[in-house]
C-alpha cells in the first residue's frame, strides 16, 4: 500500500495580468496551450505529481489573478507557499518593472524562506521582445534567485522551471531535516510548521553540527 506521494509542495504563480500564468500552469499540468483562455478571477490551483530523485513529489500549484486590485484577496493564499514563480512577459516592459512590487508583496505576505524563481514568459515572441534576457538574468542575480525564459505557447522550458523549483525546495527541506536529525531534542517527528515558521530555530541548531 504505497503512499501516492512522498512530499507535497505548495507553489504559487504570481505576476501581472496577462503575462501567461494560467497558460504556464496549463502547459505544465495538461501539456497543452489554449488561446481561448479566460482571465483568472480569484484563485484556483492544479495538481501534478512528478518524480524527483526517486521521490514522488505532489505539486499543488496556485494560480492567482494578476490585477493589482485583487491583491488583498489573493495574498491571503500566499500563506503556506513553499515556492513562488514570479512571472513577467518579455514583450511587456511594464510587467518586468512590476516584478519588484511582486517581490515586496511576497516579503509582506509569504514566509521568509520561501523559494523564489523568476520566469520571463512568451520567449518565442522574439520579434516583440522588450526585455532582454540579460536584464532578466541581472534582476535574478540581484535577488539571488534563479531565472528561466519560458514559453507556454511553444512549450519551452516550462517543465524545467517547475522541476528546478521543486528540486530546490526539496534540497532545502532535506538539509533542514538533517540538521534536525542531529539535534538532541529532535524526535522522529518533524513538524512542517516548525520548518516554515521558525527558520531561525533550525539555523541555530545547525551551528551545533
Amino acid at each position: 500500500m504505497a503512499k501516492t506521494y512522498d512530499y507535497l509542495f505548495k507553489l504559487l504563480l504570481i505576476g501581472d495580468s496577462g503575462v501567461g500564468k494560467t497558460c504556464i500552469l496549463f502547459r505544465f499540468s495538461e501539456d497543452a496551450f489554449n488561446t481561448t483562455f479566460i482571465s483568472t478571477i480569484g484563485i484556483d490551483f492544479k495538481i501534478r505529481t512528478i518524480d524527483l530523485d526517486g521521490k514522488k513529489i505532489k505539486l499543488q500549484i496556485w494560480d492567482t489573478a494578476g490585477q493589482e486590485r485583487f491583491r488583498t484577496i489573493t495574498t491571503a493564499y500566499y500563506r503556506g507557499a513553499m515556492g513562488i514563480m514570479l512571472v513577467y512577459d518579455i514583450t511587456n516592459e511594464k510587467s518586468f518593472e512590476n516584478i519588484k512590487n511582486w517581490i515586496r508583496n511576497i516579503e509582506e505576505n509569504a514566509s521568509a524562506d520561501v523559494e523564489k524563481m523568476l520566469l520571463g514568459n512568451k520567449c518565442e515572441l522574439e520579434e516583440k521582445r522588450q526585455v532582454s534576457k540579460e536584464r532578466g538574468e541581472q534582476l535574478a542575480i540581484e535577488y539571488g534567485i534563479k531565472f528561466i525564459e519560458t514559453s507556454a505557447k511553444a512549450s519551452i522550458r516550462v517543465e524545467e522551471a517547475f522541476y528546478t523549483l521543486a528540486r530546490d525546495i526539496k534540497a532545502k527541506m532535506e538539509k533542514k531535516l538533517v540538521s534536525k536529525l542531529y539535534t538532541p531534542r529532535g524526535g522522529h517527528q518533524l513538524k512542517a510548521s516548525e520548518l516554515q515558521k521558525k527558520p531561525t530555530s533550525w539555523l541555530s541548531r545547525c551551528t551545533i553540527l
Binding site: L8, G80, M173
Partner: peptide, 17 residues
C-alpha cells in the same frame, strides 16, 4: 513517518529516520 502540518494540511514532510 509522514508528518503533515496540523494547521495547513497542505504539505507533508517525510522523515526518513
Amino acid at each position: 513517518t509522514v508528518d503533515s502540518d496540523i494547521q495547513d494540511q497542505e504539505w507533508a514532510v517525510v522523515n526518513t529516520i
